[in-house]
Simulated assay, not measured.
Amino acid sequence: MLVNDVLIEVEGVTKSFTLRRRAGRFRRTKVRVDAVTGLDFQVRRGEMVGYIGPNGAGKSTTIKMLTGILLPSSGRLRVAGADPMRERVRLAQRMGVVFGQRTTLWWDLPLRDSYELARRIYRIPDADYRRNLDRCVELLELGDLLDVPVRQLSLGQRMRGDIAAALLHQPEVLYLDEPTIGLDVVSKRRVREFLAQVNAEQGTTVLLTTHDLTDIEQLCSRVMVIDHGRVVYDGDLDGLHDQGRSERTLVVDLDREVPPIELPGTRVLRVEGARQWLAFPAAASAAPLVADLAGRYELRDLSVREPEIEDVIARMYAGEEEGAAEPVAG
């Protein structure tokens, strides 16, 4: 890896918080909580990386340190060669941020006015602003929403509006913290397609935190798993599934009750009347299983459920109990 090819550098980073907890009727004690411990990774320019883990793992804390919102307790952070905390103003021109639970848009103003404010804050040249706005409006289907106050937008509409706002100044790196949380299927598809296009056409580096493994499958070639403040896996998604021995679930609705279905490479999890749940390796394709089922049974409905990230990580730890739990590279 070339040095100038690295956009994000994280070396031995730790972030600790001091909390006060009740220790009696009138007394409180200070307790140190480590949100991130000895974090090490690099992200190359143009990469789209999934940064995943259970709640409280340290994902949002990492994003906040990379954007200069939080100062690391120890270690070294560099984004485009700059310290995010000490050079926040300069880096603000080179990065975009979307927090799924918070909006950067002005609540009582129409969407168009929020974008105009962003143009002035980032001092975007008029021609660049019009070109970038037109592109975002078209790809995210925001045309009918530009004159609607942000408070009247649905969650999916607001999220698309936030993503557009984060990209108006053409940042080199985009941090996305749960950008599809709470979105319907259609909104998720629009957001994913847009992000894939921005990454492919503009080379925008993306660091994506999510609880939805489908986001990772459709967008990221690399995934990092963080748990208890440290990276426990860094590689591709297939390697993660192999490491965690994760399984997808095929939910089959038949036209009548039958004995538990026996298919090579699957195991029956549950049977309730004419519905059966079959588990199969997450890295395997569901297509041959569906074809086999369709040839043997009359099907009313069928769906595939992805494994939960928490389950994948739990399986990883279960497999590491026999040895040291070191970070795994895929």
Rank of each mutant, 00 (worst) to 15 (best):
L153P: 04
E201M: 08
D126V: 13
D212E: 08
F194C: 07
E172A: 14
N132K: 08
V185C: 06
V191E: 03
D215Y: 01
D162E: 12
P110H: 06
R189E: 13
R120S: 14
R120N: 15
F194Y: 09
T210K: 04
L140G: 03
Q152C: 11
Q152R: 11
R151G: 05
P125R: 01
G161M: 04
P110F: 00
R151P: 01
S187T: 05
R189P: 13
S221A: 14
D184F: 03
E141I: 11
L133N: 03
R151A: 07
V137Q: 05
Q218W: 14
T210P: 03
Y122G: 02
E178Q: 07
D177L: 05
R190W: 11
R192H: 02
P171H: 05
L183R: 08
D177Q: 04
S114Y: 00
A165D: 06
V173W: 07
L142E: 08
R131Q: 14
P125S: 01
P179D: 10
A118E: 09
R160E: 09
L140C: 07
A200R: 15
R119I: 06
A118M: 11
L146G: 10
F194V: 06
L219S: 13
L133T: 02
A165Q: 09
E172C: 12
V137I: 08
H169A: 04
D126M: 15
P125D: 00
R131M: 13
L195T: 06
R151T: 05
V191W: 03
L145K: 13
A164W: 09
D212A: 10
A196G: 06
I163C: 02
D212C: 08
L176R: 01
L207C: 09
R120G: 15
C136Q: 01
I124K: 00
E116R: 13
R130N: 07
V198W: 01
I181K: 10
D177R: 04
Q197H: 09
P110K: 06
E178C: 11
V223T: 05
L146R: 10
G182F: 06
D212Q: 10
V150A: 04
L109V: 15
T210D: 03
E193R: 09
L155F: 11
D144I: 14
R192Y: 01
T210M: 04
S221L: 12
Q157S: 07
G182S: 06
P179F: 07
A127S: 14
L117F: 11
P110Q: 07
Q197D: 10
L139H: 08
L174S: 07
S154I: 12
C220G: 09
E178P: 14
T205H: 01
V223C: 03
R160D: 12
L174P: 03
R222P: 03
V186S: 11
R151I: 05
P125V: 01
L117E: 14
R131I: 13
D134P: 08
